[in-house]
């Protein structure tokens, strides 16, 4: 076999592989090494930020499967996170379940809630589905408040710290490893789900549900599967969030979070696993940046200058992306890669 330039795949399996070149494997190894060593050189604050980013990434992966791939827009994602989080919290705090059993149970509960609230998607779509999922958010929070004897109502519920055997994950570093393990697993699963028959069916439904149905794809089954999978992801994220706080409270799942998760997807790029990661990371980092510049701006301009800065900047970023880069950061990243792949022989002068 003669030598060749670039990455040429010689079999179908090679073409399908997620990590195809030595560079891919090298980058993966470097990334995992970086994650593994983060607690050695990052402060507790940085670990907290990265942990929260990890949880957001898991949640946005779920929303990406539901909205990005299957086209079922949901603005109730924080509500489904609440279901997973509270289910897990109740199992641990009230029934003494270990974290490792409570977490999948929480995820499953969120998935079932997703199935229930996903039922309207069989009859409605677009704007009307958005309204139905918004209703889901409010119904879930209302239910949590009403079930005071179980959930603690508005006062919340104390949750024990998760433990693996005798090791209690009480330090920031321990929990960081846990969340990152789940984030990597969730990413790998999300990447693979969309490469399966189910994933292709999701995409077909998103692109044209009528055509998909004509081709023999069961809308009923696949739409509900998308809701289930998306909400299982939300449940895992909610559970990890609650256990990180060691406290379950309805205030941890505000309606606006559901909107921002969708915003993360828009910024990152819908229908792309990498995009979901990029969006979550970008908006969370923007959040932190705003927090840091707030006092500086306040001192330099006016005391009220920092107020609502985050709201404005988030909204502005989402609008800018919708207008100038509707395919999100992921698309921009692909363009950058393409440019450097050809460099120095650019398409442009």
């Amino acid at each position: 076999m003669g030598s060749h330039f670039g990455a040429v795949q010689e079999s179908y399996a090679q073409d399908l592989a997620i990590f195809r070149t030595k560079l891919h494997w090298g980058a993966l190894f470097a990334f995992l090494l970086f994650l593994f060593t983060c607690p050695l050189f990052f402060s507790d604050r940085m670990l907290t930020i990265m942990t929260m980013i990890g949880i957001a990434v898991i949640s946005v992966h779920g929303l990406n499967i539901l909205t990005g791939y299957c086209g079922q827009i949901s603005i109730g994602h924080a509500g489904f996170m609440a279901v997973g989080g509270y289910a897990s919290a109740i199992l641990c705090a009230k029934l003494g379940f270990p974290f490792w059993i409570a977490l999948p149970c929480g995820a499953l509960t969120a998935g079932i809630a997703g199935l229930i609230f996903g039922l309207p998607s069989l009859k409605i779509k677009g704007f009307y589905l958005i309204m139905a999922t918004i209703a889901a958010q409010f119904i879930i929070i209302w239910t949590i408040i009403q079930l005071r004897s179980i959930t603690g109502g508005p006062d919340g519920l104390s949750v024990p710290k998760p433990a693996i055997g005798s090791i209690v994950l009480s330090s920031k570093a321990n929990y960081f490893y846990l969340v990152m393990a789940f984030t990597c697993l969730a990413t790998l699963l999300a990447k693979n789900i969309v490469r399966t028959r189910t994933g292709r069916a999701f995409i077909a439904i998103r692109d044209n549900d009528l055509a998909a149905e004509v081709m023999g794809i069961s809308l009923w089954s696949y739409k509900l599967q998308a809701f289930f999978i998306g909400c299982v992801y939300a449940g895992v994220a909610g559970s990890l969030l609650i256990h990180y706080y060691s406290f379950a409270s309805i205030d941890q799942f505000p309606f606006m979070d559901s909107v921002w998760y969708l915003g993360m997807l828009i910024v990152g790029g819908m229908g792309s696993t990498t995009g979901a990661i990029m969006g979550a990371v970008a908006l969370r980092l923007l959040d932190e940046f705003i927090t840091m510049v707030g006092p500086v701006l306040s001192a330099a301009v006016a005391p009220q200058a920092a107020a609502s800065l985050a709201l404005i900047s988030h909204g502005l970023v989402i609008i800018i992306f919708l207008i100038f880069e509707p395919r999100g950061l992921h698309h921009r990243w692909e363009m950058i890669k393409a440019y450097f792949r050809l460099w120095p022989f650019s398409h442009e002068e």
Binding site: T48, D251, D287, E288, T291
Partner: peptide, 14 residues
């Protein structure tokens, strides 16, 4: 000081 926007997640990192 930092602005937490009344968001628990933000207050945590602050």
């Amino acid at each position: 000081w930092r602005d937490d926007e009344l968001k628990p997640a933000k207050a945590l990192s602050i």
